[in-house]
Computed example of a mutant assay.
Amino acid sequence: MTSLGVLGHDRYCDAIEVQVRQLRDVVTSDGVELSATVPTCPAWSLEQLLRHTGGALRWAELLVRKRVQEYTPDGNIPLGQGPEAEGDPAALDAWLAETGEMLVGTLREAGPDVKVWGWAGVLTSGFWARRMTHELAIHRADATLAAGLPYEVDPDVAVDAIDEWLGIVEFVQRTQPHDAAKELRGPGRSIHLHATDPPPELNAEWVVELTEEGVAWRRGHEKATVALRGPLTDVLLAFYRRLPLDAGRLEVLGERELLDFWLERATFG
């Protein structure tokens, strides 16, 4: 089971609010082409990515507002996927602004403990506050990279995004492993993530063990089969497969093959 995270419900709501505003800044930046291909999600244009992200936020908002208790496919919810007009930055910006206001308002009203269906073992509104924080963090990276803009994320959000990713991979690998995830099982292999720039109190280091029983992880500085070392934002993006390991901003120490093996197989399922 994943957790509600360590940042607290209000912090997640604040982070969603800020990140929606940052996503809107991408839409309205001079020279940004909504038809541009997203390099990290090449099946999508930038506009399709933004509509997908806004749709996910609206789906989560409806689940919490309606106190939904069982899985409801987003395709069965009449949310729409954005403004009727395509290629209109102003209309897309306004839709994203409304989306953020809806979600943050609903999450603040609900608090973290309302019972709501969730897909990673946590059945509360707090799960959706945390999940949408990191859905935004990663898809905002996709959008800013596609627009050729610099990407920044608050260090506490980046650290928690890695925590959440590892928790979800652990949950999926244990409860519903597909063929690729099953291959992660095995003795005597480990991965160390080491972010070099956050303040020490964030404890931005992780150890991931691939055991016969499944994936296990913890925070800490330990020797491992392979280590990924670099600035926190780059470690986050590499671990989410948004930044190539060979981009020149990260160090890989030890058995690179294990890290590649993990990145190919560690998914939501």
Rank of each mutant, 00 (worst) to 15 (best):
P231G: 07
I162R: 07
V169T: 15
L232G: 11
A146N: 06
R130T: 04
G230A: 10
H221Q: 13
T175R: 12
G214A: 03
A158Q: 08
T133A: 12
G220P: 07
V159H: 13
S125V: 06
A224K: 02
G126M: 05
T211H: 09
G188C: 04
D163M: 09
R219Q: 09
T233R: 14
G167K: 08
E205Q: 14
G167Y: 08
A129R: 09
A143R: 01
I168C: 04
E205A: 13
G214T: 06
A147I: 11
W206N: 03
D197H: 03
R189M: 04
H194L: 13
L136I: 02
G186Y: 05
G188K: 10
W217R: 01
A143F: 02
I138D: 04
T133K: 02
A204Y: 10
E205V: 01
V208D: 00
A147Y: 00
T175W: 05
L232H: 11
V159Y: 11
R131N: 06
D179C: 00
P177N: 07
P177F: 06
G167C: 07
L228E: 07
A181T: 08
N203M: 11
D179Y: 03
Q173A: 15
A137R: 03
L145H: 14
W217V: 10
R130Y: 09
A224T: 12
T225R: 01
S125G: 03
F171L: 02
P199F: 10
T211L: 05
I191L: 15
V153M: 09
D234K: 05
A146C: 02
A181Y: 06
E164R: 10
V169R: 07
W128N: 00
R140T: 00
E222G: 02
T233G: 14
L228Y: 13
G167W: 07
W217K: 01
L149R: 05
L232W: 12
V172E: 13
